[in-house]
């Protein structure tokens, strides 16, 4: 194989490595954002907000490499699916990062005022999201479409937790109308956690496409 093709294949591998790096940062941002909210830890929340630039830069780097490969190498077949898949995954990861940063901003703005009720659902959703993301990256690394499909099953649990959390907060608003501002912020945070699960499902769909060239709606 020519050195040009070897460099091309290395860049295709780089795409996966960069995506895993971004996913790892995003995973840590979810954890820190959830913990900062739970413990009203403004410093930890600021760390997440600071981390946003790194995640954006990494996402841009992935997009640039995809563009370079499309323009200079004209990838075909599984290589083409990999580039297109990673391009989509990069966008979803960047959006998850933004949602985590938004949660961290709520911490900096509300501190412990948001603790109008026990935050039992948010940490649980964050934990499931992180587990899903870890397994999703495993599926990407190993080209395992079945694992990607399995991961999306967890999203039902997240959706269920979100509905419970929302109903609980709505009930609280009716009982104590003066907590409306904090309650609304809390609903937004719960919604963000639920949306993160949806983005992970999108990533799983991209992996199934990359591996099997099938377009499946998994959530």
């Amino acid at each position: 194989m020519s050195p040009y093709r070897e460099r091309y294949h290395k860049k295709l591998d780089d795409l996966v490595n960069l995506t895993e790096e971004l996913a790892s940062q995003v995973n840590s941002a979810i954890e820190k954002a959830s913990t900062s909210l739970q413990e009203a830890d403004v410093e930890l929340a600021k760390e997440v907000i600071k981390q946003d630039q790194n995640m954006d830069d990494l996402s841009q780097k992935i997009e640039n490499l995809c563009m370079e490969l499309l323009a200079l190498q004209q990838p075909m077949a599984k290589d083409l699916r990999r580039v297109i898949g990673i391009l989509k995954i990069g966008i979803d990861l960047e959006r998850i990062g933004d949602l985590a940063v938004d949660v961290a901003r709520v911490t900096t703005q509300s501190k412990d005022k948001i603790h109008i009720t026990k935050l039992e659902y948010i940490p649980r959703m964050a934990e499931i999201n992180r587990k899903m993301l870890t397994q999703t990256m495993e599926a990407l690394q190993n080209g395992d479409a079945d694992l990607a499909r399995q991961v999306t099953k967890w999203d039902y649990e997240i959706d269920g937790l979100y509905v419970k959390a929302r109903d609980k907060i709505l009930k609280l608003i009716i009982e104590k109308p003066d907590v409306i501002n904090e309650a609304t912020a809390l609903i937004v945070v719960n919604r963000h956690m639920e949306r993160i699960g949806d983005h992970i499902c999108n990533i799983c769909e991209a992996i199934v496409y990359m591996v099997e060239a099938k377009r499946e709606h998994l959530n």
């Binding site: 194989m1 091309y8 294949h9 075909m76 077949a77 599984k78 083409l80 699916r81 060239a213």
Partner: peptide, 19 residues
């Protein structure tokens, strides 16, 4: 053929892995 070839040999050729 260019998005999802059935045969590995075709895929190897069009992705430059042939030979």
């Amino acid at each position: 053929i260019f998005e999802n070839p059935k045969m590995k040999s075709t895929e190897d050729y069009i992705t430059g892995r042939f030979g």
